Amino acid sequence: MIFEALKPQVSQIVSNTEKTVNERLLNICELLETHIEYYNWVGFYFRNGDKEELLLGPYVGAPTDHTVIPFGKGICGQVAVSNKNFVVPDVSAQDNYIACSITVKSEIVIPIFVDGKNIGQIDIDSNTPDPFTEADERFLEYVCNEVSKILP
């Protein structure tokens, strides 16, 4: 499976201390977007200090206007509140969805925890309807766990 092949590459990116944290996060986005054909937009959002909002971090894919997302709004904002994975097979069926692009059909968001605290998330949009499986969730949990090692 492609996920097993990508895990060592994710770990290698994370452990490359010659690059900044943001450079490593961008490299992870590039790796995932390049090697998983239905990952069309890959990015990170992080809690903005003590504010109840998320700020867009490194990402690859189409530009987005959604650089700040209030907690509770959209899929990312809901994950910031629930602390749980959120897989959306069909974004058009979600009432509380923030459309980034008309081509997006589905989304998966996995929280990142540091010392038990939800400090951000990885957000992936797909132009393919319902492509995400439990294997995607487990792989992205692995990615988030690796990323948590380099976050303050």
Rank of each mutant, 00 (worst) to 15 (best):
N22K: 10
S106H: 06
I13W: 11
L54R: 03
Q12T: 14
G77C: 14
N27H: 09
T133L: 06
G74Q: 02
V21F: 01
W41M: 06
I122D: 04
I69Y: 04
H35Q: 14
L140A: 03
N83T: 09
Y45S: 10
P129R: 10
F44E: 04
T34I: 01
N127K: 08
E18K: 14
A93F: 13
R24Q: 05
N48H: 13
Q121M: 15
Q94Y: 11
V104H: 13
G72P: 10
F113I: 09
P131H: 12
L56W: 05
N127H: 10
E107Y: 02
V14S: 07
C29Y: 03
K19H: 12
V81T: 11
V68S: 08
V42C: 11
D50Y: 09
L56Y: 02
I112A: 05
N48P: 01
L56I: 06
E30F: 01
G74F: 02
V79R: 00
K105I: 02
P131D: 12
I108G: 00
F71H: 04
D95I: 10
E23A: 14
H35R: 10
V109D: 06
L56M: 09
P63I: 03
N118C: 15
F71A: 05
I108P: 00
T34N: 13
G116I: 06
S106V: 05
I75R: 00
P111I: 08
I75C: 01
I28P: 03
I69E: 00
I13A: 12
N96K: 09
N40R: 08
S106P: 04
D115T: 06
T64E: 05
E37W: 02
P63E: 13
C100F: 13
S106N: 02
Q94E: 14
V87K: 07
D115Y: 14
F44K: 01
D115L: 11
N22I: 03
C100G: 15
F132N: 00
G116Y: 11
S92I: 04
I28M: 07
C29P: 02
S92N: 14
I28G: 02
F44V: 02
Y38D: 08
T67R: 14
E33L: 09
Q121Y: 04
A93C: 02
T64C: 10
S15K: 14
R24T: 09
D90K: 14
L54T: 01
S106L: 05
N96S: 10
Y45R: 08
K117Y: 10
T17H: 12
E137V: 14
P111V: 11
H35N: 15
L32N: 01
E33M: 09
I108D: 01
D115E: 15
I69P: 00
Q94F: 08
L55N: 10
S82R: 08
V88G: 07
E18T: 15
F44C: 07
A80Q: 06
F132G: 01
R47Q: 13
G61H: 06
E53D: 13
G49T: 07
